[in-house]
């Protein structure tokens, strides 16, 4: 099979997208910590779980935003460039 320039670009794109997604490790840990904290608090004070859930989801959203930046970079590499 002959490998042309388009194949090489495609391979580089795939590798680049994969590397870009390394950035989701941090947010993954972060979201885990957020949920851990929220669950601890809910276990201690079940009455506050309503308020805590909302705040927890917001916290997750902030941590997730960073992962989304990595994802967007990967998507741009794959589908736009």
């Amino acid at each position: 099979m002959e490998i042309n320039g388009l194949d090489l670009i495609s391979a580089a794109k795939t590798l680049g997208a994969g590397l870009a997604m390394i950035g989701v490790i941090g947010p993954g840990i972060g979201i885990g910590l957020v949920v851990q904290g929220a669950l601890n608090a809910m276990g201690r004070n079940p009455d506050a779980s309503g308020q805590l859930t909302t705040t927890m989801i917001l916290g997750i959203a902030f941590a997730e935003a960073v992962a989304i930046y990595a994802l967007v970079i990967a998507l741009i590499i794959l589908f736009v460039m």
């Binding site: 959203a61 997730e64 935003a65 989304i68 930046y69 967007v72 998507l75």
Partner: peptide, 13 residues
Amino acid sequence: LSFGFRLFGNIFA
């Protein structure tokens, strides 16, 4: 950026 990309990134992904 964070508003726009969060929504777009999640749904597009």
